[in-house]
């Protein structure tokens, strides 16, 4: 349960922004995420849910439209921020996360990697106390696992802990408005 933008108390629909669709383990991971969502009073929505996009003209544009259509139906974003093809999260996941952040929707990340950027195993050289990667870009040292703009997002160290973070935020709003907090399922 949470209080939506119209002041109604209901289960929030969570957009699962992730890179699982590129992996053979997609189905089981998404199933697990949805079960955890249910435990905390959320409805998980995966971009691939619903009828598959029909093959044909402008197929990929229609896939974009379908994904975007799913985003429009959600209240909250949970983004998988683990490294993808290197030392950065998946760009599609970040695009979706940025969309929610800009529009003021509650947005959370989950990430199991090092706590700070400096702790990542990025090849580096040091100059005057600053570390630079092999292309000459400084590695930020700001008590955080990601670069500056991602500080706009609350990040937990696992999917379930992201659910807990969101649950605590929503319960706080419920209590302030005179409602009972949600009772997490055992």
């Amino acid at each position: 349960m949470f209080i939506d933008r119209e002041g109604k108390v209901r289960k929030p629909v969570i957009y699962l922004a992730d890179f699982e669709m590129f992996l053979p383990t997609c189905e089981e991971t998404v199933k697990y995420w949805k079960e955890v969502c249910d435990k905390y009073g959320f409805i998980g929505m995966f971009p691939g849910d619903g009828d598959p996009v029909e093959p044909g003209d402008n197929f990929w544009q229609r896939v974009f439209n379908s994904d975007y259509g799913h985003m429009l139906k959600c209240d909250v974003c949970f983004a998988q921020l683990d490294d993808w093809r290197g030392h950065e999260p998946d760009s599609g996941t970040l695009w979706e996360l940025g969309w929610y952040v800009a529009l003021g929707y509650p947005s959370y990340g989950f990430y199991g990697g090092p706590k700070t950027l400096l702790e990542r195993k990025i090849e580096r050289t040091e100059e005057d106390g600053v570390f630079y990667d092999s292309e000459g870009y400084a590695i930020e040292d700001k008590e955080y696992g990601f670069d500056n703009m991602l500080t706009l997002v609350k990040v937990a160290d696992s999917f379930e802990n992201a659910c807990k973070l969101a649950r605590a935020d929503f319960d706080k709003q419920l209590i302030e408005a005179g409602y009972e907090p949600y009772k997490v399922k055992e």
Partner: peptide, 12 residues
């Protein structure tokens, strides 16, 4: 800092 992926801030 990866292959086939742009800077995280850019995507966001």
């Amino acid at each position: 800092r990866s292959y086939l992926e742009p800077y995280s801030e850019v995507a966001l």
